[in-house]
Nucleic acid binder design. Sequence first.
RNA 1: GGGCGAGUAGCUCAGUGGAUUAGAGCAUUUGGCUACGAACCAAAAGGUCAGGGGUUCAAAUCCCUUCUCGCUCACCA
Length: 585
Amino acid sequence: MTSILQQLQDSVSQALVSAFGSEFEDSDPLVVPTNNPQFGDYQSNIALSLAKPLKQNPRAIAQAIIDQLQIEQMCETPTIAGPGFINFMVKSNYIGKVLRKIHSDPRLGIETTKNPQRIIVDYPSPNVAKEMHVGHLRSAIIGECLSRILEFVGHDVLRISHIGDWGTPFGMLIAYLREAYPEALTSQQELNLGELGTFYRQAKKRFDEDENFREASRQAVVQLQAEDPATIKAWKIVCELSSRSYRQIYDLMGLSTFIERGESFYNPFLADTLQELDQLNLLEASEGAMCVFLEGFTNRDGDPLPLIVKKSDGGYNYATTDLAAIRYRVREDKVQRVIYPVGSEQNNHFAQIFQVGKRAGWITEQHDFVHAEFGLVLGEDGKKLKTRSGEAVRLQDLLNEAIARVRADLEARFAEENRNETEEFINHAAQVIGISAVKYADLSHNRVSDYRFSYDKMLDLKGNTAPYLLYAYVRVQGISRKGNIDFSKLSNVEIVLEQEAELSLAKHILQFETNIKDVEKDLLPNRICLYLFELSQKFNQFYDQCPVLQADEPQRTYRLILADLTARTIKLGLFLLGIEVLERM
RNA sequence: GGGCGAGUAGCUCAGUGGAUUAGAGCAUUUGGCUACGAACCAAAAGGUCAGGGGUUCAAAUCCCUUCUCGCUCACCA
């Protein structure tokens, strides 16, 4: 159903036209939730912005709009405040009616979009030639979250992992495989190549210490790109090795299944892509390489910066593949929007390939290619997160550490409270809480800024953390257990909302849709986090002040409905963030 | 040097043109369990929104400028 905000916006727009004519049909009615409840629930600032063009007193404009408004069902008579703000107070019986309606809806009244698009979210896109480390954390978490939200809103979302399976570092691994495990290439059976991390480190060590090995690596890249059969075989072995190790982490993180369409997929299209650029006269030779010279980018000396699409050794690089991917996604996948959740270090890269994509005519006005950039993960010291020995933290280790800390905390708590829980319960709870905490800590910060990774903060039971939200959910389930309540079988009583805590909670539940629609547009999941945190706070206040099970009917039933709606909103909200809930914790 | 981003309470952060008082959380101090899980709630204290100009009836928010920090600038991805 249409949100209250949307209804108000529509009503103000109509009133604007009735009062001042059809030329205001398309002006934004500037209706927003108030930032202070003393001014009501919503406000419109339209009168102030029209004061100048209409050459009228803003308060008079506000009055003229109010005179044309038809919202008696929904709101108290709007008031004019200060220089000309129009304040709206939603009627509590109207809120009660809406809550009754959404209670029977699995989508909690949230409508799907009227303009469904096909959207690619490009994640988690790790590089086969590197072990997954903390740098891949945010792409996986943010990509998963954005995909779920866009899908929920009704878009056709393709999750595509653009894995780096064709680059130069790959040569190093192939060369090392040939050197250390030559039998892997001839044997029919699968060989145990040991642990992935060890394999990488040894290959890297050889690469760093031996010039001949480096040359062999470069050769391997060229052979790979020429699709030499023996090299392809070695390539497949290394891909399989790293793919096995990735899958463990994806499962642990609860990522949705996605299409694995790595750089190798675009290999057959690279030559065509370049040829097309050449036909458009975008291609130039420079220092032995083929380049597109960029507009608005210069190097240190102030000379125009090239985007190299074919290296002087004849090989292609990641810019080439990314351009081929842009072209393919527009022409074959027929997408309208492509979202790349990738670190802001790659700002330039994306600006560059998007520019070339536009100049080549692949990206048009009909397409929205977005670099959903995110900041670095910093350690407690404010510097890029590293292990004590200075290496990137392995993702597996980071997640395990979070789970282990939760486990220790749970065990201590259960011992203190004399609770006997099974090993299975503790393991499951520790895993859900630990992973949730890591994800939530990431998503609750503004995507664009760097954020400080702190186990103590993310696992805190107080404040804007996953455990706090999970606890609010568990409290509602506690009510249903204690009172033996089946939330799906509550009778449809009138919702009265007399107490301030009830009203405040109820109004907040209805704001969910607006927040989801905001994230659909600006791709900033921290808005959902803030919303859910405030919802949990309001629920805890309600829980504190309003007895549910001990209340008399019909109050008891409508408070149960409020509690259930809260829990379902939290559950759905967390689902959209990629986070599971627990029934007990 | 160029490009991009950031600078808001002791700490971690919200806040992309509106209301005498710029918001949370943590930490600190103080209250509340014979009410559904106190993993909670309530209250206090804490700020020249990096500095300086400008636009506006109105600026943390937009523009200009200075300073500090981060990322990045031709064959890695």
